[in-house]
């Protein structure tokens, strides 16, 4: 376990720093923007699609191919749906006088 942490120590540094960045970024947001923000964050975690592409690109047998394909479709849904919905919400904010 300790070895696991030390061999990946840079990733652990990244995690700690990103936790603080995330908290800083959200800390001062007016509550009017909470819904678009949640939706935008929702789209960003769609980055998980990268993992599904990597898995898919190395899949050989049929079941892995099928599962990987579903994963790519779902990941894309998360990314595209997330960003488009957020954009639609924010479009309305822009129209205000």
């Amino acid at each position: 376990m300790l070895e696991f942490i030390t061999t990946n120590i840079q990733m652990f540094y990244l995690i700690i720093l990103m936790i603080f960045v995330g908290i800083e970024l959200i800390g001062h947001v007016p509550s009017v923007l909470h819904t678009p923000l949640m939706s935008g964050a929702n789209a960003i975690h769609g980055v998980v699609i990268i993992g599904s592409i990597i898995v898919m690109g190395q899949a050989h047998e049929i079941l892995s191919l099928i599962l990987g394909f579903i994963a790519v479709v779902m990941g894309t849904l998360n990314v595209v749906g997330g960003f488009v919905v957020t954009d639609r919400m924010l479009e309305m904010f822009k129209k205000k006088k």
């Binding site: 995690i15 936790i19 995330g22 908290i23 970024l25 975690h45």
Partner: peptide
């Protein structure tokens, strides 16, 4: 993936 995921996780 790590940065995107953790950012959203903490935020």
């Amino acid at each position: 993936m790590l940065i995107g995921g953790i950012l959203v996780g903490s935020a």
